[in-house]
Every structure is written in C-alpha cells, then in structure tokens.
C-alpha cells in the first residue's frame, strides 16, 4: 500500500494585524498537549518544559506558523520530537541512576501511577500511537502523517499497544485486588 504524505502546505504569510492571537492559541492547547506528553514521558515537569519550548519555537516564527493550515499540528510535532529526544536521554540516564541508588517517589494518585507504569512497559512506538490516539484524539491518518509512516503501521502499533496496555492494566488491577 502506498501512502502519500500530504504535508500541510503553508498558506501565504498573513499581515501582522490579521495574525491569529498567539495567547488564545496557547491557552486553548497548552494543557491538552502537556497531558499527552506527560503520559508519554511519565514526568509532568519535563512535559511542561517541553511543551513550553515547543510554544516558544512557534512564537519565534508565529507569522509563518500561524499561516499553516493547522498550527497545532506543527506545535504538537515539535513537542513530540523534543519529547522523543528527551525520552531517549532520560532512558540512558535512568539506566545509569538505577545502578547507583534506589529511588523513592511520592506523589500522584494511584490511577495516574498505574497508567504511567503500564505505559512505560509497552514499546515506544506503541506508546506514542496509543497516547496520540486515546489522549490526543488523533485519527490513524493524522498519526501516520505525524510519525511519517504508513497507516497500516499505525494500525498495527495501535492494536499491539492496546493489547499490551490492556494486559498491563488488567494485570495491575488483578495484582492490586489480590
């Protein structure tokens, strides 16, 4: 199957006075995007930093970005790319730290911990697909565009991710009940 990657063609750059309001764009999307990245990384503060960085980059080129058909897709893609890069660094650091000391973490509710723990146990691509689909409410086509893969691949990631996450969640519930 051949998938045509239809990148959103930028519209002509609008005049400064007709630019969509950055503040409204930020407040409408910041929280939703942060929750997605938080679910992916499992670290709320990192997620807040990364999403803010993505918005900083958007604001730096707001004239251009606001001219895109979907400025949110641009910001989301930047945030996810930053998150992936941070995730890989974090994984390396965690592997090192795990060897150095035992970690005690206090904090979020058991539900939140259960989900982040379950998500951390499924492969990275599956996790991205599951978070974007369930939390970001993106369609399979939109995820395929963002990730630069075929729709069939996304469907496969979703199916496997859903099964793995479901198993993890039911396993945890069973374990908690026991």
């Amino acid at each position: 199957m051949t998938v045509v990657m239809a990148h959103a063609a930028p519209r002509p750059v609008p005049a400064a006075e007709s630019l969509p309001d950055f503040d409204a764009f930020y407040s409408a999307n910041y929280l939703r995007l942060t929750v997605q990245i938080y679910a992916y990384l499992g670290d709320q503060h990192e997620a807040e930093d990364l999403v803010q960085e993505a918005f900083c980059r958007a604001f730096s080129s707001w004239k251009t970005v606001s001219g895109y058909a979907e400025p949110l897709a641009w910001v989301r893609r930047v945030a996810w790319n930053l998150a992936t890069s941070r995730f890989r660094k974090q994984k390396t650091a965690m592997n090192f730290l795990r060897k150095q000391r035992e970690e005690h973490v206090e904090g979020p509710s058991p539900d939140r911990v259960a989900l982040t723990r379950a998500l951390s146990k499924i492969p990275e691509h599956h996790r991205r697909a599951v978070v974007l689909y369930y939390l970001g409410q993106l369609s399979v086509t939109e995820i395929a565009l963002q990730e630069g893969v075929a729709e069939g691949t996304v469907k496969s990631w979703l199916s496997r991710g859903r099964a793995a996450l479901g198993n993890q969640l039911t396993g945890q519930k069973g374990g908690d009940d026991a």
């Binding site: 930020y26 929280l31 942060t34 807040e48 918005f55 979020p108 599951v130």
Partner: peptide, 24 residues
C-alpha cells in the same frame, strides 16, 4: 483504556500549572 486515560487526564489537568503565554 479510555477510562484509564480519562482518569489520568482529569487528575493531571488538576496539577499542571500553566505559566501563561506571557512566560513564552
């Protein structure tokens, strides 16, 4: 999974502090 993400979102949204676009 929908339920788990729903709970997660509700819980996370209550603790995420938006610094506002002024910060950006």
């Amino acid at each position: 999974i929908h339920g788990a993400f729903g709970d997660f979102t509700e819980d996370a949204e209550s603790t995420i502090t938006s610094a506002g676009s002024g910060d950006v």
